[in-house]
Design a binder for these strands. Structure first.
Lengths: 190, 190
DNA sequence: AAACAAAAAGTAAGTACTCACTTAAATACA
DNA sequence: TGTATTTAAGTGAGTACTTACTTTTTGTTT
């Protein structure tokens, strides 16, 4: 295995070998796409922010869209990480607690991933509500276990609440949602 | 006052005189900005969709951004319309009912206004949470009247719920949220 | 260890557009 | 006739991407 300036990242389910420059390009692109938008970001801006030549972007990625697709793979990885703890938990009350607290556990370094994800949700190519289904299924199980009258609707409601809290955190900061979190924890008797 | 092809629309608080061509330009821009994004939309695309010459856009609007600002004025108008009925209602239960049902009363012709609004919320120049304060204040009053324990948090929670329902309607269609609406009406005993 | 070749990574310059916007002349319409 | 609009051409800047070349790294041989 090679030992040069490089690192390993998980993109979806597979291991990808990447140089330091590639990493810099992806980081720069993430920041710009997440905050300015894909179309509003030029490859020249990305190159400058990454501290590389513009041509190098096209050496490592097929085109500008290919860069977005690589980032999207990383976004999906973040999402899976976010779910894993919830999916594998077996105590219904713990599931609820972890779920409600999940937006508050995301490190701020990951906020651009989430911003990009929410921006991309408005593009039909990238919007797939099925992706949230495992979480909704898990929550449905929780509300069934806890003998709620409409477990499926409770699950859907909570999933959408968590999403709107995450959006608000990204826009207004974590502090703006802390009271609401505690309020929800109380509502669900946690 | 001129009598040719024209109409009157309210932009924020004042009356704006507008030709049919201006209207077509704005409609085309709305559709494209809302669905493709501002940066991803060229003035040539707008002209073609509006069925006018590209030069005419710049006769009527200072620049591309000016077009967006004019649309934003209309977006704000739609928002005020949406609030008016709620703000002026004096029966707490009716306020809740109207609020929960409000995303479902929006005509689909207005969906692009709302799409644009949600897209623009990710731009700091256009994001202003204070705008929702009148609604939150009204709902706080409602929950106080109805003797809820934490009226302010209840109001905030509901406001965010309504927003996420509106987003889901825009993405997935009205039918996807009907069950949730009925569920909420039931939760609030309406 | 040193020398060299090959492979990989990276750069600067270039290419062929597209873009927002302007301008002047011509056309259309009431 | 006066006004609104179109047409056509143009401008200068910016865009995504390519190309030819350079630099760095890796592998092989001595």
């Amino acid at each position: 295995m090679q030992k040069r300036n490089s690192s390993f990242i998980f993109v979806s389910d597979y291991l990808l070998f990447m140089t330091e420059k590639q990493d810099k390009i992806l980081s720069a692109a993430l920041e710009l796409f997440a905050n300015e938008g894909f179309s509003a970001t030029s490859t020249n801006q990305i190159a400058k922010k990454a501290g590389v030549s513009e041509g190098l972007i096209f050496k490592h990625f097929k085109n500008k869209k290919g860069l977005l697709d690589a980032l999207y793979g990383q976004v999906e990885g973040k999402l899976s990480e976010g779910f894993a703890q919830i999916i594998f938990e077996t105590d219904p009350k713990k599931v609820l607690k972890i779920t409600i607290e999940s937006p508050f556990t995301i490190p701020s370094e990951d906020y651009d991933f989430w911003r990009l994800q929410f921006k991309l949700k408005w593009e039909s190519d990238y919007y797939n509500p099925e992706k949230m289904q495992p979480l909704i299924d898990k929550l449905t199980w929780v509300f069934t276990e806890l003998n709620y009258e409409s477990p499926e609707l409770e699950a859907k409601l909570l999933e959408q609440m968590i999403e709107t809290i995450m959006v608000a955190i990204l826009r207004q900061g974590k502090e703006s949602q802390l009271a609401l979190k505690d309020f929800l924890l109380k509502k669900y008797e946690l």
